[in-house]
């Protein structure tokens, strides 16, 4: 009976002065409305529980630090905190989508396919083919160096040993190979991006 008679403002005031029981009464009085409000937004019991807890942790800290401005609006104030925390929750989830265990299970929500889709795969193959054809047009010495460097991943030292030229010559041939490729690409407006 006492719970009904005591106003929120009085309970808050008592709590600030150290009466822990006042907090219990406040929580008991408003828990259903606050929890239902949170649940109506997040539709997940565990998340609602977390947000409810965080809401009251914030309430407790604010009250204990004496930062609460009593205007007889305890419930709207708590609801506002809960609302802000719900927004924070959704913001966080947007950044880091999480596995949703509540509703219908969809395996595709947790699995991501790193492979390219059919269209992108075709474009990629096309680009690779175009590059190969362009390389075929290069002078033999340049094509040889570029092939060893890019496709066989050999170092310039290895290339120089294999081809019997100095490292500087191998580097120069690579440079000219790239310059010539760029020239042909620009001249014919070839698009080589995926």
């Amino acid at each position: 009976m006492k719970n009904v008679l005591t106003s929120d403002a009085t309970l808050v005031s008592n709590y600030i002065q150290g009466d822990e029981n006042s907090l219990a009464i406040l929580i008991k009085r408003h828990k259903q409305r606050i929890y239902s409000f949170i649940y109506s937004k997040v539709y997940d019991r565990d998340v609602a529980e977390d947000v409810f807890q965080d809401t009251f942790i914030k309430v407790i800290k604010t009250l204990k630090k004496g930062k609460y401005n009593e205007e007889g609006k305890f419930l709207p104030w708590v609801m506002r905190i809960a609302h802000n925390l719900v927004i924070d929750h959704f913001r966080r989830n947007n950044r880091m989508p999480k596995f949703d265990n509540a509703g219908e299970f969809s395996i595709f929500s947790v699995l991501t396919d790193g492979a390219l889709n059919a269209e992108k795969q075709m474009v990629k193959d096309q680009v690779h083919n175009d590059v190969r054809r362009l390389i075929e047009e290069l002078p033999d010495d340049q094509r040889e160096v570029l092939h060893m460097r890019m496709y066989q991943e050999m170092s310039f030292k290895e290339i120089s040993e294999r081809t019997g030229v100095s490292i500087n010559t191998a580097l120069g041939r690579m440079r000219y190979a790239l310059i010539n490729l760029r020239k042909v690409i620009e001249k014919h407006n070839i698009i080589l991006t995926n």
Binding site: I27, K28, Y35, Y39, A48, E49, F52, Q53
Partner: peptide, 13 residues
């Protein structure tokens, strides 16, 4: 008509 768990309340108190 939903309520938080009793453990949550107990934790807060």
């Amino acid at each position: 008509d939903m309520n938080p768990k009793l453990e949550t309340i107990a934790f807060l108190l």
